[in-house]
């Protein structure tokens, strides 16, 4: 189902113990069209996680409104708004394996769907469907989640979110702490799911390779505001601006700039991936 996300002047603050962080978000305006894959980047503490939390009603705006589909989150909300929003927005936190608790993998995956009113039999079907989507075998469903390896736990946790069949998927560094191979596998299963379900996906990441490989759009946050929201290729075209935010370039683009500088030959397009770079190098006759 198509789902649009719109933030209108959203401001929010946290209160944890005695420390009140004033305005972790301030006047955020943002419109994310349905079906896009957006990367959210910015330094630690710039408000990325807070932005994600607002999407899920875990952080309530002090000012402004967040529109998620036809639901509106603002200062005062009915409880059913949160339930409705959380049903539609699947949230994969950093190190999601830390949320596993049930006796079996099956029960853990069914936890979300059942909370949102899916009958157990149906939830079981969802679980067995989704476990294959994340690249695990059926027989893992009967095991205890605590007996699995780190990479398997991560997949089970993600499966638990996917089983809720969200229209919007929000991920906070889903590959953190995994080896390069494990990370690439997780990212490609997310991309496949995004395409298959025509989901709206938001990915918080520090890794510019992820941005270059998976995102359609880039959202840059700084001091609790969105300072830039652009199509990914436009975003990487201006390397001086990236330097200003002390952001790295993805390998292909970085290498492209070096080649262009050394040879004086301009490549025909902005290369974000290795494949694009190879094509471009061959096209202009450098390789």
């Amino acid at each position: 189902m198509a789902m649009q996300v719109k933030f209108h002047n959203v401001a929010a603050d946290y209160k944890l113990g005695p420390i009140r962080q004033s305005f972790v978000l301030q006047s955020v305006n943002l419109a994310i069209s349905s079906g896009t894959f957006s990367a959210v980047i910015g330094p630690t503490g710039s408000g990325k996680s807070s932005l994600l939390k607002v999407l899920n009603g875990l952080l309530v705006p002090k000012q402004g409104q967040a529109h998620i589909g036809d639901q509106v989150i603002e200062k005062e909300n009915d409880k059913h708004v949160y339930k409705e929003v959380r049903k539609r927005v699947g949230m994969v936190f950093q190190f999601p394996e830390s949320q596993l608790f049930a006796e079996t993998v099956l029960q853990d995956i069914c936890f979300g769907p059942i909370n949102f009113g899916v009958p157990f039999e149906e939830a079981k079907k969802l679980a067995s469907d989704v476990i294959e989507q994340v690249g695990l075998e059926q027989d893992i469903l009967t095991k205890s989640p605590f007996s699995l390896s780190g990479g398997q736990k991560r997949r089970v946790a993600i499966a638990g979110i996917l089983a809720m069949n969200p229209d919007i998927l929000v991920l906070d560094e889903p590959g953190a702490g995994l080896d390069p191979k494990g990370k690439a596998e997780i990212m490609s299963l997310i991309l496949n799911w995004h395409r298959k379900k025509e989901m709206t996906t938001l990915l918080v990441t520090h890794d510019m390779e992820d941005v270059a490989h998976y995102a359609d759009e880039v959202i840059v946050m700084e001091n609790g505001s969105v300072v830039m929201h652009e199509e990914v290729r436009d975003f990487f075209s201006d390397d001086q601006r990236l330097e200003k935010w002390s952001l790295e370039l993805p390998n292909a683009r970085r290498f492209q700039l070096k080649v262009e500088q050394d040879t004086g030959v301009k490549l025909p397009n902005i290369c974000l991936t290795k494949n694009e770079l190879v094509e471009a190098l061959i096209k202009v006759g450098l390789a």
Binding site: K53, L58, K79, R86, S98, F111, G112, G160
Partner: peptide, 14 residues
């Protein structure tokens, strides 16, 4: 604790 609570709330716990 906060993180796990958020994660379970996101999975529909009230």
């Amino acid at each position: 604790t906060q993180r796990i609570m958020d994660a379970q709330r996101a999975r529909g716990t009230q």
